[in-house]
């Protein structure tokens, strides 16, 4: 795998096309690390000159901000902006909708102005440009895929079609859950819920969402967010359906469709 940091690019006097913002989940969460690798395999395969910040990347501050801790958020945000502006970053791609939202919408008024794209949009553009060609779509034949809308892509930023368009490239049947697009039901992780126990209630939110996913009889639940991925994976496990229903990130599915990755179906 070819991964170069911005510092390395700077040292060799080169400028990368795009900064790949890995994010905390993508860096540390074992499941999300796999998604990071799949996405990098795609980038490598297409010879895209991307850079990462590596140890110069910090959390964007999203969970702190949404929990109410504006101090911690802004401390991290201003640090990140200092680093990125220092390198003259123009364009960012990220596999996390929370990072995407905060970099795109909330960093500008703190002095961080970049073109920010989520990886699903990025992949869609590459497909539209004819750069991504899927050769190994046979494995998806006859399968049903249901896409789980991430709140921070969907309602927060009105990105509903790009992930679906990307999935349409796989030769599978795309089915919708009871609540989708603007009405998509949250996985339960946002607003820093990922990092604490639920308040008392009838059930956990990811269970409610998994029920909707299971109702579609899909074999694949496609996610576009590392936190949704965790929530849906846990949900599927709690129904003991993990052998027949798999949760994959769109990057993993596309990498598999390109023959760059193998996935279990």
């Amino acid at each position: 795998m070819q991964v170069k940091s911005y510092a390395e690019y700077a040292a060799s006097g080169e400028t990368p096309e795009v900064l790949f913002w890995v994010g905390c989940a993508g860096s540390f969460d074992q499941r999300a690390q796999k998604v990071t690798r799949s996405f990098v395999k795609i980038l490598n395969h297409l010879n895209i000159k991307f850079a990462v910040l590596g140890s110069e990347e910090s959390c964007t501050g999203d969970p702190a901000k949404r929990a109410g801790n504006e101090f911690v958020y802004q401390m991290l945000a201003l640090q990140n902006i200092e680093v990125m502006n220092g390198y003259g970053v123009r364009k960012i791609v990220t596999t996390c909708p929370h990072c995407f939202n905060i970099l795109k919408n909330e960093y500008p008024s703190l002095g961080g102005n970049y073109e920010v794209v989520h990886h699903t949009t990025y992949l869609q553009q590459l497909i539209d440009q004819g750069k991504i060609k899927l050769t190994d779509t046979n494995q998806f034949k006859g399968k049903r895929i249901t896409y789980h809308d991430s709140c921070y892509l969907g309602r927060a930023n009105e990105i509903y079609e790009a992930p679906r368009k990307v999935l349409e490239e796989l030769d599978a049947e795309l089915v919708e859950m009871k609540s989708c697009r603007t009405k998509g039901l949250c996985c339960g992780a946002g607003g820093a819920q990922m990092f604490k126990e639920d308040e008392p209630g009838k059930k956990r939110i990811n269970i409610a969402r998994t029920e909707e996913a299971l109702e579609t009889d899909a074999q694949i639940v496609a996610a576009a967010c590392p936190f949704c991925n965790t929530m849906m994976t846990d949900g599927v496990k709690s129904f003991e359906k993990q052998s027949t229903v798999k949760v994959y990130d769109i990057a993993e599915l596309i990498a598999a469709g390109q023959g760059l990755d193998t996935i279990q179906l």
Partner: peptide, 12 residues
């Protein structure tokens, strides 16, 4: 610099 207790040096 992360919500979990991992070293920033290990981000790669």
């Amino acid at each position: 610099g992360a919500p979990w207790q991992f070293s920033q040096q290990d981000r790669l």
